[in-house]
Nucleic acid binder design. Structure first.
Lengths: 110, 110
DNA sequence: GCTACATTCAACCATATGGTTAAGTCGTCG
DNA sequence: CGACGACTTAACCATATGGTTGAATGTAGC
């Protein structure tokens, strides 16, 4: 399914809005894992983890590949880039004094 | 309500996972607005926009202030910083060749 | 082919989300 | 003080989310 840029941001941010899924991504940063390995540290059923994996896959943050009877999961960090860029638009604000925001964007008025 | 760092990421990413809310943040980047002004361009009721505003407020991405009979809404972009930093952890990945990821993190094996 | 293992799918459930309309609140102005 | 304007809250609805358990699927190995 091809998604619009807005829809891709929707699914990426939605995927990130859950601590279990963020933890999974952190684990995958250290290398690929099987579903079983990913699920082990989490206090929930394998089926529940499988659903989280599907949410991450839908956001294209991971890729799944069959390897024998295992399903190996790999990080696709580049899908985070648009999200990072979206947020980075605001980075110029967070080192400024709050009162300067309007001036900064609308030109010096006072 | 004081939130854990994880809970704050939850609410920020959740707030960003909706195109209407992202648009509202973009509008607010140009300066403060009243709720009416924010709602005008959107094809939904004022009550619906009010709910979106509440989600953004819960994530501390905006602040509301009473000004006469108006409610003025201001961007609080600094609350995006932790989200940006969380994502930035992965930035070293997206300029690399996929095959290098494990080597990069686990030391050169092959 | 049978069995075990790894994962997925289906059915179900409780709660959350995103929208609606209608009523309520709170300042301002005549 | 009475009415209007600008929101906010409440009640309601349909659909989505996040979890469960139990059955189904797909490979590997005897």
């Amino acid at each position: 399914m091809v998604k619009s840029s807005a829809a891709r941001l929707d699914s990426v941010f939605h995927a990130l809005a859950d601590p279990t899924r963020r933890q999974i991504l952190r684990e995958l940063a250290a290398g690929e894992r099987t579903l079983g390995e990913i699920a082990a540290p989490h206090k929930m059923s394998l089926a529940a983890v499988s659903k989280h994996i599907k949410v991450l896959e839908n956001a294209e943050l991971i890729a799944r590949e069959r390897r024998g009877s295992f399903r190996i999961v790999r990080l696709q960090a580049q899908s985070l880039k648009p999200a990072e860029e979206w947020i980075a638009f605001y980075s110029r604000f967070w080192n400024q004094k709050p009162g300067n925001l309007e001036k900064h964007l609308e030109g010096d008025k006072v």
